[in-house]
Design a binder for these strands. Structure first.
Lengths: 394, 394
DNA sequence: TGGCTTATTTTCCGCTGTCAATAAAAGAAA
DNA sequence: TTTCTTTTATTGACAGCGGAAAATAAGCCA
């Protein structure tokens, strides 16, 4: 179910058109020949697919450019015209609403945030509408229409229906967010789980480009994981997937809010680190940054807290690698601010716990600015814009 | 790479033909209309797809049959003619080679086993050839040709290349098994990992029919897991996937042969149970059946060994469910002989450790006769027969 | 200017699956 | 018995997608 009011739609008349567009979107400017090769189509098909996209302005032709072989007809590079369309991505947390305006290439043009004082759906809805309104007003200056809105929320989100089934941080249950916001803003709205949205962003615009099997692990208040298998984001039959935070790595570990002991999140989540840091150092520690500061200062025992956290995360990642054998794991999240404190432990425990060839998985890290979550939401909106209309795709 | 010599091939000229055939294969006799609905095609397409398959004898028409609505033209049921073609499935273990002859519907017609005295590839190859020869001779009586051979081996197997990369139990490395056996037997040969092959069998002919996301967990000497995500078996970018046996559930647990502590297999594998049973009861226990007997007799401490095993398995399954959110988990394996001893603990610890809606996953058990592994290999051969030729499929 | 090489476009062409109409096979109604 | 009704299966025309091959374009180099 999609919620649209007006709507410029994407001319994805055929699978080939979708495919060529996403290929060019993800792999930067390409010659038609190269695009054909990557998409597994004939050059003729590319010419045909590109034409309507050029006409509609979604693609543009660069008068070639860089170093080209000195022989033969020069190639014409085809690229996505990012400025052709704009999208808004919104991340809703219990504390604030973050919104970004991106172009079609998912580059952030503007960012805004608004604190959340009342977590009730209605109040949050107002904030979202306000930020959206503000960004749309500013978008005028870019001379491109805003064609979609993505909203990322943590918890159990049914993207297909646009409903937030349950979000613990917001204390929401069965909020038909897409419909509500679509009615208010008149934009096509996509609602997705925050980690899945971030995963889509990596798949289309980040370190997951070109990979059919990879995982994104986010470290921060919670520990989350987005999975891409067979080229598609895993959603889970019951809306739950990627709950690496609640993989139990130590039955004797600390109690987790989920009721079990030794979940990764109960060892390496921000709250766990903070409370453990208080215990170990005896000092008042309120937020993650303070905990990291203590460790950086070399306070006795502080580094060990991060070591344990890194160890838990590494084992969680090894579990993911053992079970589905991704080509790459991308570690990201606000928690990466303290990455130097546990990087080594993550990698060591991953290597130790990964079974056989699973250890060949490429474990990378990527910094995650605060707007990235909102950008993920925008990526989901872009994806929906491109793939929805006539020809659905995975 | 496929290795074929002669070869009757499947007339899968178009995607629609493949799809209709597999739909009918998995969902028993269907009317054309019903098949169209399930496959998402028009009735006209079904008529056209069915015709060549009927002509080639792979499908047959039942003169309707059962209770039909009393109104309208009676439907003609279309079903797969299992007797049209035969396949051989072989499971190779360190102790014996098991071979079955199945029909196109993967029903076992005959089974044979041969002990392995020499694990060298060459010796095993001879056994495989011998059993194959024997079954082909008997197949004459069924009046149908043997059209493929599947071989299941535990370890790291590259199905696409037909190579056993590494099999610990057999101590094989980079054995180009498919090519070797194809040369010897003249049959098209598929080689796959044993658990994946079993998973294919469940997906096409078992409890996974119609599901796009499920897992098969095998309990026995090792603890294995096959995953189906987005309707396709997960193979892993590096050939490793589904290693639930090496998911670490307790850092203080017993040492595993993989070098880590507290792997599920180090707690619940046959060897682990046997050795733990010796420790606990002080009695000589050599094989799993004896361990189970002790527990059934009520020997002090014996039941607790199974409780711990069940607990570890349950937590491993919960980990799978938390990460993928499968619709169903099918527990199977020779270890199920002792299922009454740990069933309850598996379910309890699964329920406790599954996060949120992941607990809604349907956990089933299925007995696994010794030939089932070989049947899995046959299923892989059937799958390859149907999907290979002109139109590949996932 | 002609020749060479590589990129792109054009021009068919085959093929697939849909659509809408039609045939078929009963039981029900007249 | 004949005709209707209802449901299933089939047919034949057709649209459109993507491929192959040939033609064209666009430079560089003699």
């Amino acid at each position: 179910m999609r919620f649209t009011t007006s709507a410029e739609t994407f001319p994805a008349h055929t699978p080939a058109v979708s495919q060529i567009f996403t290929t060019v979107l993800s792999h930067g400017p390409l010659t038609r020949l190269e695009a054909a090769r990557r998409a597994g189509l004939s050059p003729a098909a590319v010419t045909k697919a590109v034409r309507p996209l050029l006409a509609a302005g979604y693609l543009a032709e660069d008068a070639d450019g860089e170093a080209r072989p000195t022989l033969g007809r020069p190639a014409n590079l085809v690229r996505v015209d990012g400025g052709r369309a704009l999208f808004i991505g919104v991340k809703v947390t219990g504390d604030e609403v973050i919104a970004v305006l991106t172009d079609l290439c998912c580059r952030i043009r503007l960012a805004r945030r608004l604190p959340v004082t009342d977590r009730a759906a209605k109040a949050v809805l107002t904030s979202v509408a306000e930020l959206t309104h503000e960004l749309r007003a500013e978008a005028e200056d870019f001379g491109a229409p805003v064609l979609g809105l993505g909203i990322a929320v943590s918890g159990d989100v049914d993207r297909a229906e646009g409903v937030v089934r349950y979000s613990p941080f917001l204390d929401w249950r069965d909020v038909a967010l897409a419909e509500l916001v679509a009615t208010t803003t008149g934009l096509p709205v996509v609602v997705d789980n925050d980690v899945r949205a971030l995963t889509v962003a990596e798949q289309w615009f980040g370190a997951g480009v070109g990979l059919s099997d990879f995982a994104v692990v986010t470290v921060g208040a919670g520990i989350g994981c987005g999975l891409v298998v067979h080229g598609r984001v895993v959603a889970g039959a019951h809306g739950v997937a990627g709950e690496i935070g609640h993989v139990a790595v130590d039955p004797a570990g600390p109690l987790c809010h989920c009721g079990n002991r030794g979940c990764v999140e109960a060892i390496a989540g921000d709250a766990a680190i903070v409370s453990r840091m208080r215990e170990v150092t005896g000092r008042p520690v309120a937020v993650a940054a303070e905990a990291a500061a203590l460790a950086h200062e070399g306070v006795a025992g502080a580094r060990e807290v991060y070591a344990a956290a890194g160890d838990a995360i590494g084992r969680g990642i090894a579990t993911v690698a053992n079970l589905f054998g991704p080509e790459r794991v991308i570690i990201s999240g606000e928690g990466l601010a303290a990455y130097d404190l546990f990087a080594e432990h993550i990698l060591d425990s991953f290597t130790a716990a990964a079974f056989g060839s699973a250890a060949r998985c490429d474990v990378q890290t990527r910094p995650l600015a605060f707007e990235e979550w909102a950008r993920g939401a925008a990526a989901a909106a872009i994806q929906s814009f491109i793939t929805s209309s006539p020809t659905p795709q995975g």
